[in-house]
Design a protein around this nucleic acid. Structure first.
Lengths: 149, 149
DNA sequence: CAAGGGAATGAGAATCGTTGTCAACTCAGG
DNA sequence: CCTGAGTTGACAACGATTCTCATTCCCTTG
């Protein structure tokens, strides 16, 4: 995960039915499986629309809205990383389950996951020093990879 | 600044006779001054629309598009920091000229600028280790400030 | 194994932040 | 007083994302 805490948490964003916390069950539908498989087929960050296109190329007909919804769930579930390009577009990538950050190539999109206990400690210390609670952070490094130079 | 390198920097923007390749001079118009003053009147991050509203309240009639354009220039000029909320909206704040990061309160938007030589070093080291060049990075810490708890 | 109900889907409309368009305007020089 | 490049504003255009809602699907129960 890029963020320490779940994203997109909006007050009262989801209807509280019978389950205490959001949808209780996630049904493994054809569409969700297709999205999950698509996510497993590449290693860089892609936009929802690109993922939708990829599904189309694979012969899977999945609605764009469904792709967005599936991706949302996967992000909330920590199975997928979400980050924003500099112009605010959301891009996704499957991720390992440990907390980590990314080194992203600006020109080809290649990514490397990096970990930094020191950074984690530093952010926590900073937050504590100023009395902030429920801390999360985002850290991304952009650059030009060796291949693109 | 939040980023290590200038955003949207366009090399070679000199006056070339009649070449229509971008404006060479920035005129200090009433509108631009108004936006600059508005930016000086608060300390947290605000969206372009909020800044536009603020101008309205101050009795300054400035078009929304102009607010966006002014903000853009100020970001490019390094006078203003730009970052993205978790849902991708751009928020702005005037900033000091040193490289720094932010501790942002999720509920009231209050911000604290923090500096961390260690983090700077770490990102540089990481990038170098993987052969990345022209490195920049973004690091923001979100949390709940003491007052909002 | 049929039935029932809530979850999920899809197609398109609706949002909403942001950018583009372009005629009108401003103002420093000549 | 002209002139032209830089600016502005109102509004259209855009693009990503979300919402709506009738229909379809999955799973459990009887």
């Amino acid at each position: 995960m890029t963020s320490t805490e779940p994203r997109g948490a909006q007050p009262g964003a989801q209807p509280e039915g019978s389950a205490p916390t959001g949808p209780a069950v996630v049904r493994p539908t054809r569409q969700r499986i297709a999205v999950a498989e698509a996510m497993a087929s590449f290693d860089d960050f892609r936009s929802a629309q690109e993922i939708h296109d990829l599904l189309g190329q694979r012969g899977e007909r999945v609605g764009l809205a469904t792709v967005y919804r599936s991706l949302q769930r996967m992000v909330e579930g920590g199975e997928v990383d979400l980050l924003r390009t500099e112009d605010g577009e959301a891009i996704y990538r499957r991720c390992s389950d440990t907390h980590h950050h990314h080194l992203v190539c600006r020109s080809c999109g290649a990514t490397v996951e990096v970990e930094g206990p020191a950074v984690e400690r530093w952010t926590r210390a900073m937050a504590e020093e100023h009395g902030f609670a429920d801390v999360s952070h985002t850290l991304e490094i952009f650059g030009t990879c060796p291949a693109c130079r």
